[in-house]
Computed example of a mutant assay.
Amino acid sequence: MNEALRIVVVAPDLAIADPHDEHAVLQAERSRALRIGLLENNFNLVATLPADVFLSERIAQLQPDLIIVDAESEARDALEHVVMATRDERRPIVMFTNDEDTSHVKDAVAAGVSAYIVAGLAPQRIRPILDVAMARFQHEQALRAELADAKTELKDRKTIDRAKGLLMQRQGLTEQAAYEKLRKTAMDKGLKLADVAQRMLDVMDLLG
């Protein structure tokens, strides 16, 4: 993994209001251990942010390569904030938690989490965890791109077929002649064949 990988950690404040609150102390220690582990593994920790209404704006400004959510069961809203903050520009998300209730894993993965780690903060585990998360995210992005391309290609083919059908019907052309007419127009205007077909359909709709 690239050492310059820009990472943002979304986590609660490390400040402890009640030093006798054992749960808060343990959570703060775990969160601190995560950040130290990232630095020890030479990752570029650009910021630690609270999960609040300003998270989307801060992530947009920082443009991290990967987001780590450090959360306990009572802080699940942190994940919701992160998912909302990355819905327009997807990024790999890794969630670290000590909550052993795995009922949340399915929802977390469906929401876009690349890795869901329970009690996995040993420093030697951080790098392989993030490596796998990045690889999985890149694979999923490639699959999404392939699916989007396939949908676009199918839509374009249907548009071209509709335009050919109209030309055949209204100008008495053969299918090959209709295709060649669309193709020539696209080449003359420097446009994609599907774009020419769609423009022709739009004009036909206007003319009735």
Rank of each mutant, 00 (worst) to 15 (best):
A148W: 02
A71E: 08
Q171S: 13
A28I: 05
R127L: 04
G172D: 14
M84D: 13
A163H: 11
D13G: 07
I117A: 06
L49M: 08
A133P: 05
D202Y: 08
E140D: 10
N42C: 06
Y179C: 09
A108N: 04
D188P: 07
V94N: 00
L49P: 06
E3K: 02
A24L: 10
H23D: 12
A111H: 11
D202Q: 13
A135T: 01
D18L: 00
A119G: 15
V118C: 08
V53P: 01
R87E: 07
H139E: 06
A194W: 04
V94A: 02
M168L: 02
L201Y: 15
A17Q: 13
R32S: 13
V10I: 06
D13C: 10
A194K: 03
R32G: 08
T48G: 04
L167G: 06
R6S: 12
A28R: 09
E40Y: 03
Q141R: 01
V8W: 05
P50A: 12
T86L: 07
H81T: 11
L62Q: 09
K151M: 12
G120A: 02
F54I: 04
S73G: 09
Q198V: 12
L62C: 11
T86C: 10
L173T: 08
L55P: 09
K181D: 05
A60E: 05
L38G: 00
L38K: 00
V9A: 01
R6Y: 07
H104F: 06
E57Q: 12
V69M: 03
E3F: 01
R162L: 12
V109F: 15
T152L: 09
F137E: 02
D161H: 09
K184L: 12
H81P: 03
R144N: 14
N98G: 14
E40F: 00
M168Q: 03
L26G: 05
K184I: 11
G112E: 05
R157G: 15
L173P: 08
D99M: 01
D161P: 08
S73Y: 09
V9N: 02
D65H: 07
V46C: 10
A135S: 05
Q61R: 11
E29C: 12
R32V: 07
D18T: 00
D156L: 11
R136D: 09
S56F: 06
D188N: 10
P128H: 03
D21Q: 11
M134Q: 00
G208T: 08
A78S: 11
P12N: 08
S31N: 13
L154Y: 04
G120D: 03
A60M: 06
T97V: 05
T48A: 10
I93H: 09
I160F: 11
L62P: 11
I126H: 00
I68P: 06
F96Y: 07
A119T: 15
V69R: 01
A17T: 12
M200A: 14
R91C: 12
A122Y: 03
V25S: 05
K192E: 04
H20W: 11
G190H: 04
V113F: 06
A4I: 02
E72S: 04
S114R: 01
A110S: 06
L206R: 10
R87M: 07
